[in-house]
Amino acid sequence: MRREATVTFDPSLRKPARWRTAAWLLVATCAGLPVVAGAQASEAQMSAFQKYTTCPSTGRRSGACPGYRIAWKVPPCAGGQDRWTNLVWLTEVAARQKMQSDAAACAASAPRP
């Protein structure tokens, strides 16, 4: 007797980091925002952040966190470090607003040619 494998789609699973980064770059480019090198925390630091802090919506330390994103407290272009202690949970709306203010701050601190 032959068994057939079934594949189910779980929408609660997060997209891979490369897709999140690509989406951010596309939005930033289309909106005319400067693209900042290293705008995403490293996967190791994001994993450490999730290990030590709980998701505000689920209370878990692993898996998806619906409605929230991990963002920099201080972006690297403004002197922040790529460390899990420099990350914070923000709502989707607050994360978008912070991304715009961080992009403006990084553009202002960038050396002019």
Rank of each mutant, 00 (worst) to 15 (best):
L25N: 13
R2Y: 03
D102Y: 09
A64M: 04
A41R: 11
R96T: 11
T85G: 02
S109K: 08
Q50C: 10
W19D: 14
V93F: 03
P16Q: 06
C77Q: 10
V7F: 13
A105K: 12
A17D: 12
A95N: 04
A108C: 01
A104E: 03
L33G: 02
P111C: 00
G38W: 03
W84M: 04
A95I: 07
L26W: 07
L33C: 01
T85H: 02
L90Q: 08
S101H: 00
W19Q: 14
T8H: 08
P111H: 04
G59I: 11
S57Y: 05
P66Y: 00
Y52R: 02
V7W: 09
W19Y: 06
L25M: 10
Y68A: 00
C77I: 01
R18P: 01
Q100P: 01
E4K: 10
L25Q: 13
K51M: 06
A37G: 02
K15T: 01
P111S: 07
E4N: 08
Y52N: 02
V35Y: 00
A64W: 06
R3L: 13
A107R: 15
W89G: 05
V7L: 15
A31K: 09
G32H: 01
T21C: 12
A64N: 14
M1K: 03
A37M: 01
S47T: 14
G79T: 05
G63H: 12
W24F: 15
R96A: 15
A108S: 06
T85K: 06
Q45P: 03
M46S: 07
S57H: 10
A104G: 02
N86W: 07
S42M: 02
E43T: 11
G59Y: 07
M46W: 00
A107F: 10
D102H: 15
A78E: 09
I70V: 15
S109L: 08
A103R: 05
R96I: 08
C106A: 11
V7Y: 11
A110D: 06
L25V: 02
S57I: 02
P75V: 01
